[in-house]
Amino acid sequence: MILDAFNGVLILIFLIGVGFILGKLKWFDENSNTLLTRLVVYISLPTFMLSNLTTSFTKEQLIQWSNGFLIVIISILLTYSIGFIITKIFKVSPERKGVFRSLFGLSNTIFVGLPVNIAIFGEKALPFILIYYVVNTLSFWSIATYDIRCDCKDVKGSILSLDNIKNIFSPPLIAFIFSVVLIMLELSLPKFIIDGCKYLGSLTTPLSTLFIGSILSTMNFKELALNKDSLLIIIGRFILSPLITYAFLTLTNFPILMKQVFVVMSAMPVMNTSAIVARRYGGDYKFATAMNAVTLIVSFIFIPIYIFLFQYVFK
C-alpha cells in the first residue's frame, strides 16, 4: 500500500532526474526552456483538461456533487488567504509573494494526488479526485496566475480590469469552461479530437518535470536549502491546508470516502505548474522549482501518515 502510494512521487522524481541530467549535458538552454513553458501552458495542459473532464463527468454527477465543489472552493480560498497574511507577517520578498501564495495554497492534484489517492482508496475515489482537481486548477489559472504576474509588475489596474480579465482567461481556463459547457449540454466531441487531446495532454507531466529538472541543473544546491519561506510552505501544504479542509468537512454529511480524498488532496506537494507560469511571466521560477523538489521529498514523510490515519483512525 505505502509503496503503491509512493509510486507517483517516484515517477516524478525520476522524470525530474532525466531533465536534470539533460540540463547538465546542455541539451536545454534559455530558448528550449521557453519552448517547454509555452507547450505546457498553451497546448498540453488545455488538452489534458478537455480530454479528462469531458470523459470523466456527466451532467448528473456535476449537479449531484455541487456541494463538494463548494467545500473545496472555500477550503482552498481560505488557505490561499492565510498565505496572503503570512507574506505580510513574515515579510516575504515582493518579487516572490505571488509565487509563495501559489505554492502555499494549491496542490499537485493530478501528478501526485491522483496516484496517491488511487493507491490508498482505489478507483472508486476517482470522481472525488477530479472534483478537487477541477477547483484547484481553476483557482490556479484565475487567482494564482494573476498573483504570480503581479510579482513582476506585469499587471495594470485591479484583477477585474479588462486587461487583466483577458489575461486570466488563459488557455487552460478556457479549456475548463468549454469542457463544463459540453458536459452541461450533454454534447460530445468527435472521438478523433478527444483521442488527439489525450495524446497531447499526456505530454503535460513529462514536459513540466523535464523543465523543472533543467532549471534545477542550473541552480546552486544552496538554493534548495530550507529557509523561512520554504519551511512556511511545507507547513502550509502538509499541515495547515489539510487541517482547514478537515475542519470544514466535519460540518458536512458527505460520504466518508469523499472527505478522506479531499483531505489527502489538500495535503499534496506544491503545484508543479507554478514553476512553468513563473518562468512564463518572469516570476521567481527558481524558488518555485526548488519547492517542487523539496515538497516531493518531504511528501515521503507525510504520505505514510495519511495512509495510517485514513486506514486505521478516520474510518
Rank of each mutant, 00 (worst) to 15 (best):
I118S: 11
F192S: 13
T37S: 05
I215D: 01
R101E: 15
A278L: 03
K315Y: 02
F14R: 05
I13S: 05
N117K: 07
M184N: 05
K24Q: 13
L216V: 14
F100R: 10
N136F: 08
I276P: 04
S75A: 15
L203R: 11
F310H: 08
M219E: 11
D229V: 08
N31K: 12
F6R: 07
I215A: 05
F14M: 10
S274T: 15
I235G: 14
S217E: 07
D163I: 04
F111D: 05
S158Y: 05
I305W: 04
S158W: 04
K97D: 08
L15P: 12
P172S: 11
V155K: 14
I244H: 07
T58E: 00
N220W: 05
P269M: 09
T37G: 00
S161W: 02
D154L: 11
A293P: 02
K228C: 09
L160M: 09
N67G: 00
F140H: 13
K124W: 01
T273I: 15
K259G: 03
L53W: 01
G236H: 09
L249F: 00
N227S: 12
D151E: 07
I118Y: 09
G105M: 09
G213I: 04
Y133C: 03
L126S: 03
S266Q: 03
A247H: 00
T273C: 08
F140G: 09
F287H: 06
L232Q: 11
L130A: 06
K156S: 13
F211V: 01
K228Q: 13
